[in-house]
Design a protein around this nucleic acid. Structure first.
Length: 242
DNA sequence: ATCGGTACCTGCACGC
DNA sequence: TGCGTGCAGGTACCGA
């Protein structure tokens, strides 16, 4: 989402909405874009009064250029350019609002001590916690699996039982991972593209996500796949012991 | 508070 | 080639 936002922020500010089509909310008509920001996994387009929230779900794409397709679900036509919304599975959403949805702190902004304190208050498994948007806004399945591998933590480990040191290491690994992923333009598995329709390359640096059966890059052990809160989870049983 | 199950929707990879 | 199954960057809601 961060990489989509960065692309949109280069182009949209100052433009005025002329009309909308499809799922785009009518409230934006006639309003001028002030800024484009990210709020967790939401893309937030700031207008003179109120905000357009866009959540891409699993397969959503928000683009400034490129061809219309079978899965184009909506458009925001501006005085200079068109913002097009495509979504194969229709899990994404666009809506107008004046208040932010209730969410936890941003993983890139939360401090180490605050992160530790929040985790230690909870009895649930660390993977479920990282995925919970009311706990942290922004971590998804890819980066959760990747960061737990980097920090050497089992996805079923209970947060409240982990030491301050391990949690601080997890916090540091999480911020480093996200910054590297943003630097690489994000992870494109099948559908993800930025605002210009370009794929990211961080998938080339994934170490465990969707790599069940492959050898662990650190120890050579065969990577395992389990289900945690109904999400496919891949980890190294040797480097990430319970 | 937390969890499993289900639902939403479409495409794709895989086995037979 | 075709069919059935399971899986997918997410989230909401249900009942236990």
């Amino acid at each position: 989402m961060e990489t989509v936002v960065r692309g949109l922020a280069l182009v949209l500010p100052g433009l005025e909405v002329e009309r909308v089509e499809g799922v785009a909310p009518v409230e934006v008509i006639g309003k001028r874009v002030l800024a484009v920001r990210r709020y967790g996994k939401f893309i937030v387009v700031d207008f003179t009064e109120g905000m357009l929230f866009v959540h891409l779900g699993m397969t959503g794409q928000l683009m400034l250029s490129g061809e219309e397709g079978k899965f184009t679900r909506g458009r925001v036509v501006l005085d200079r350019g068109v913002l097009r919304y495509d979504d194969i599975r229709k899990f994404g959403k666009m809506f107008w609002g004046t208040e932010y949805p209730e969410r936890g702190p941003d993983p890139l902004e939360v401090s180490g001590p605050e992160f530790v304190a929040r985790v230690q208050r909870r009895r649930t498994r660390i993977k479920a916690l990282l995925l919970d948007q009311s706990f942290l806004r922004g971590m998804g399945n890819i980066y959760t699996d990747e960061v737990l591998f980097r920090a050497g933590i089992h996805p079923m480990a209970v947060g409240a039982e982990m030491s301050r040191e391990r949690l601080l290491a997890l916090h540091g690994a999480m911020q480093a991972l996200l910054l590297e992923a943003i630097e690489a333009g994000g992870s494109s598995i099948s559908d993800y593209v930025n605002a210009r329709g370009e794929k990211g390359s961080f998938q080339e640096q994934h170490r465990v996500y969707a790599k069940k059966g492959q050898a662990c890059v650190r120890c050579g052990e065969v990577l395992e796949r389990i289900l945690v809160v109904q999400r496919g989870t891949t980890f190294c049983p040797k480097c990430q012991e319970l």
